[in-house]
Structure formats: C-alpha cells, structure tokens
Amino acid sequence: MRIVWRRLCVIAPCAVLLGACAASDFSKPVTDFSDAAKKAATSLTDYEKTLDQAAVDANISYALGHPSALRYPRGDCIQGAKRCRLIIRGEGGNEINLDPGPVDPRIRGAMAAVVSYVDNLKAIVTADNAAAIKSASDAAAASAINFAKAVDGYNAQKRSGAEKLEPQVSALAAPVSAALTYGLTQYAETIKVQALRRATTAMNQAMPEFMTIAGTVADSGLTSKRNQLASAFDNANSAFIEGVSAVAAARTKKKEKTDKGGDDDGTLPEIDRGKIVAFQNAAQAYDASLQLNASQIFSDLAEAHDNLTKAINEPEISLDEFAAILQRVVEGASKLNDISKSLQTASTKK
C-alpha cells in the first residue's frame, strides 16, 4: 500500500489511474526540462562558435606558413564579380574556404531539432483544448435549440399538431453539451498523453548517444579556449623565468662591481612585481578552465530526459529528484556561460 501511495504522490494531480492522467499534469516537469534543454543548447552554441573561430585560425596559421596558398577563386573579387572569397589552395590542388563555416552543421541541426522537440512537448502539455471544445459544444447546443424552434415553427405553420420539440431539446441541451465537452476533452487528453508517452519513449532511446556527441563538441570548444589560456600562461611563465634570470644577472654584476671597490647603495635588484601578478593572473585563468567539465550538463540532460520519460510513462521517480537533476543542468549551463565570458576576457588580456 505504501508503494502504491508513493507512486500516486509522485505526479500529485495525476488521478488514481495512470490512464486518467491529463497532459497538463506534466506541465511543470516538461516546462522545466524545456528550459534546461534550451540553456544547454545555448552553451553548446557558445562552444561551437569557439570551434568555428579555431577552424579559421588554423587556416590563417597555414596561410602564414604557406602565403602562396592563399588565393581567391577565378572570377571572384574582380569588377562585376558576384562573390569575393579567400581560399586556401592545398598542394594537391584542393581548395577550402579560409572561413570554412560551421564545423558541425548537422549536429547544430540536430540540437535545433531537440529545441523544437521540447517546444512541441510544451505545446502538448499547455494546449488548452477544453475551452475550445466547451465553446464549440455550447454553440452547437444553442444551434440545436434554434433548430428545434425552427421545426416547431414549421409544424405550427403546417398545423400538424406535433408535440413541441424545443422544450425537450432545451432541457437536454445543457447536459448533452456538458457530456460532450467532458467526453471530447477526455478524448483529447488521451491523445495528448499517448503522444507524450510515444515521443519521450522514442527520444529516450536516442538521447544518451546524442548527448555524448553534444558533450564532446562542448569539450572540444572548451579545449580550444583552454589552450589559449595555457599559451597565455606559458608566456607569463617565460617572462617570469627571464625576469628572475635578469635579476640574477644584475645581482652578479653588482657584486662584481662592489667586489672591485665600487659604491654599494645597500639595495638588491628585485624582480618586477607586475611579472608576478601577471603570472598569478594567467595561472588563475588557466586553473578555472581546467576545473570546468563542459560535457557534464549534457549527460545530466540525458539523465533528466530519462527521468521525464519514466515520470510520463510510469511515474516511479520523485519529482524532487527530477528537479534536482534539472537544477544541475541549469546551474552548469549558467556557470559555463559565466566562466566562458571570463575566459574570453582573460585570453584577450594575454
């Protein structure tokens, strides 16, 4: 009994039997999942932009080493031309655009389709069909009464002596309309809940694999950002070593001078404080990037979808548990966005 009670408590407004659940009972978890998925998609876009730029940078680096490879296609960039594009011509004659465009167009399309999917789920759970059905049913009932009145008028004109239809129809119209509204609303809810179940079940099979892919894309973008910060750290490190070495040289020179009887002002050359601060700043920025796990929010999102699917199909999990996973996704995405901006700032300071 306790188990049954726990299950029933999971989706609180969901009526006694699962089959009696309304799509709107899942409104909150679906809306929360939709918000979290959109935040994860925004994070992914940020990393994809980094990768796009990395691809352009790689081509520019190649062009630096092979300036003669940088060309424009014949017919481009001349008076009357329709395009002006720079290309890299490889040794084998193959050509690629200096700016190759999005590195993962299909993955982007797939993530956009995931956003459409959560929008569609949300549309199902928030669609208010009951109001439209009630309004249409009430109008049809009123029309039925008008029809009865018209028939009564016709019978009266014909002096047929037929019993009046209108009072009978009027008496039945309200309860029939209410029954029609109820029945059709239930039918609509059944269609919606079945659609939710079928959709989440189908997507749940494919979601973990795609989230692994999305996580890898995010991880790749982070690697690219991280390496910029690592490079900035190396430069600061070298500047510090050279600074220490220069101080050692200055001290040796001063010692030689005083040993030969020169004046000693009592001071010792010291390393520039700014070099230590720059070294520390570079280390901190690099450290922050090393502590990030870009792919985590995507595996969390796959787990959240699995829980959403279970909640819709067989409410076994607690919504508190589900909310905790979603909170992780949202916080992870916000953290990534914040740190991503600070990384951008730090890497431009180098």
């Binding site: 797939a110 389709a113 459409s116």
Partner: peptide
C-alpha cells in the same frame, strides 16, 4: 547523428500531428 536526426524529426512530426 544521422540516426538521431531521423528519430527527432519523426518525433517532432508526430507531436505536431497529434497537436
């Protein structure tokens, strides 16, 4: 990725149709 695109597109189509 191809498989996923097929699944998500079919799912979206079904959801829209039910709506």
């Amino acid at each position: 990725v191809t498989r996923f695109i097929n699944v998500v597109n079919a799912t979206n189509k079904d959801l829209k149709s039910k709506l």
